[in-house]
Design a protein around this nucleic acid. Structure first.
Lengths: 163, 163
DNA sequence: AGGTCTTGGTTGTCGCTACAACCAAGACTC
DNA sequence: GAGTCTTGGTTGTAGCGACAACCAAGACCT
């Protein structure tokens, strides 16, 4: 039961999931870079901000929601700021902290980019599945996330969408 | 039916799959770098070689199986060669081509690394699922792969493992 | 045989991420 | 109220991947 090896059925599921994880990021990445000049992670960041109250989040909270290290996020936000999509300002309550806010241009960017991104997701994932499989996939990924994210760092994000 | 948007159930499945794709690679990556000083992609490369006849593959074929561009693979193999895990030699039949062969040290590396990697996969993915969910996941990922990999570039890899 | 096209790889450069070092502000202790 | 610790964030550096440029060998045509 706790053997280090996988049996045939487990292996079959795993190699396919691994293949999806190998192929899918590239597909999303290329579409976003081509159509919006955004990294998939860039898009994730602005999308999180667009759903936040006041389109504003503290860097630490944004890092949690996007599963990024703080240095990585700092660099990314700096680039987004140089492009006028995001602005940073010190948090009034806690002078250590920095707030990141989506600008109007950033909001427009999200609105312009979201449909194409959603279409890519539909084409390559959703439309391949039956409604029943969609429900199964939700339960399966939910179970996996309990292992991957036991502290629920990102759970606030995906739990916003209940099936 | 072809709306650009996702409905609630589709959205629930997608955000969870996206979260898994965000979290899982980091888990695998850290385990392999810590325990074997290998990138996940490095491991993938040597694992593919270890399953090939004569532990040897042409660069182009290896690139197909690992979904890598040729430049990327060239760099990776160069580093693996410097570490003595792989060796390159010109293909006798086609003097343009280069063969990559796993050395004995490379083989030993795979054997030493595989159990820990498999254990990580079990802990974070397999053990979270029921046998029925394993079967469902196989079908779901298989359906997605038909969209992601219509030419079957990587299908030779995952079709080696039938449920 | 000689041009052109295609295939198979390598090398060089730039951008992004991980990791470490660092700094500033709050919290906690005595 | 002066250490000390913790929290929040930025900056610097090194390594990996994407893309473009390039080179060599086979294929194809006449």
């Amino acid at each position: 039961m706790d053997s280090p090896w996988l049996d045939d059925k487990q292996q079959a599921a795993w190699v396919r999931l691994a293949a999806v994880m190998e192929l899918l990021p590239g597909v999303l990445e290329r579409q976003l870079r081509r159509d919006a000049e955004l990294t998939h992670f860039d898009y994730f960041v602005v999308a999180m901000l667009s759903e936040a109250p006041g389109r504003t989040l503290r860097m630490t909270e944004l890092a949690r929601q996007t599963n990024a290290t703080l240095p990585r996020l700092s660099h990314v936000v700096q680039r987004l700021e140089e492009r006028g999509l995001v602005e940073r300002f010190p948090c009034p309550q806690d002078k250590r902290a920095t707030n990141a806010r989506l600008t109007d241009a950033g909001w427009a960017k999200v609105e312009a980019t979201a449909p194409g991104h959603a279409a890519t997701v539909r084409t390559h994932v959703i439309d391949a599945l039956t409604p029943q499989q969609i429900a199964q996939l939700t339960e399966i990924t939910d179970a996996i996330l309990h292992r991957l994210d036991p502290n629920g760092a990102m759970s606030g994000v995906y739990n916003r969408y209940d099936p």
